[in-house]
Simulated scan of single mutants.
Amino acid sequence: MRVLIIAVICMLSLGACQSQHMQAIDKSNLNLTVDDHSALIEFMRPESYGSRFQSSIFNITNGTPELVGILSAQNRFIIKLPAGSYRFAVIGENADFLDAELDDGKLYAASITTHIGFMRMQYKLHAVKNSSLEAFNQQCPSCIWTKPLPSAKEWADANMPSIRSKISKYLPKWINNPSRAIINPSDNLAP
C-alpha cells in the first residue's frame, strides 16, 4: 500500500500544472475569424517536459512588454492582431525572441520548447514554417486551449523589472544571430 501511495504522489507531481493566470477554454469559444486587416498567431507548448513551470509570452514590438499569454506544458492560445510586423519574447530563466510579419487574413504559429536552465527552465521560440494546420495540430492533439485571466496582467506588472532585465540582457545577442526565429508572410498555416 505504501508503494502505491508513493507512486501516486510521484505521478501527480509529474503532471501538468496549469498556470493560475490562464483559463482553459473550449475551442468552440475561440474567435478564429480574421478580416482584411487582421491575422491570427497561435502559440503552442507541445511538450510535457517541464510541466511544473510556465513560460510567459510578451509582445515587445513597441519596446514596452505586453503580456499576451502564459503557457504551461501541453497548452496553447491564439491571439488576433492587426496585420504588420511584430516581435515576441518568451521569458523563463532566459529570454528568447521571434519576429513575425503577419499578412491580412492569415493564421500563423509558433511553438515553444523547454530546456533545463541553471535555476529554472529556459525556453526557445520557434517559427512554424511550411506546415499545414492539421500537421501543426498533430504536434499536440491533447493540448489545452487557454486564455489569460485578468490576474495575468497583474502578475506581469508585478514582475516587470525582471522581465525587462531579461529582455535587455538577451535581445542584443538574439538580434546578432543570423539564424534567429522569423515568421515570414508566406509562413502561414495552410488549411
Rank of each mutant, 00 (worst) to 15 (best):
M1R: 13
M1S: 15
A7E: 10
M11P: 04
M11I: 10
L12W: 08
L12N: 07
L14T: 05
G15P: 02
C17S: 03
Q18P: 01
Q18N: 07
Q20M: 03
Q20K: 13
M22Q: 13
Q23E: 13
Q23H: 01
D26A: 02
D26Q: 04
K27W: 02
S28H: 09
T33Q: 09
T33G: 01
D36H: 09
S38N: 11
L40R: 07
I41V: 14
I41Y: 12
E42N: 08
E42M: 12
F43C: 08
M44I: 11
E47Q: 12
S48P: 01
S48F: 08
R52P: 01
F53E: 10
Q54A: 11
S55Y: 05
F58M: 05
N59F: 00
N59S: 01
N59M: 05
I60P: 09
T61Q: 01
E66N: 05
L67G: 09
Q74S: 11
R76E: 03
I79E: 00
P82A: 04
S85L: 11
F88C: 07
F88E: 00
I91L: 11
I91N: 02
G92F: 12
G92T: 06
E93K: 07
A95F: 10
A95V: 01
F97N: 10
F97P: 09
L107Q: 09
L107M: 11
Y108D: 02
A110Y: 08
S111W: 08
T113D: 13
T114R: 15
H115N: 15
R120G: 10
M121P: 07
M121Q: 14
Y123D: 01
Y123C: 04
K124H: 15
K129Q: 14
N130A: 13
S132V: 06
L133T: 13
E134R: 14
A135E: 15
A135F: 04
N137E: 08
C143N: 08
K147R: 14
P150D: 04
P150Q: 05
A152L: 10
A152P: 13
A152C: 10
E154F: 04
E154W: 03
E154S: 09
A156Q: 06
A156N: 02
D157F: 05
A158K: 15
M160S: 10
M160Y: 06
M160P: 04
P161Q: 02
R164H: 02
S165A: 14
Y170K: 02
K173S: 11
N177A: 01
P178N: 10
A181V: 13
I182A: 02
I183E: 01
N184Q: 14
P185W: 06
P191T: 02
P191Y: 02
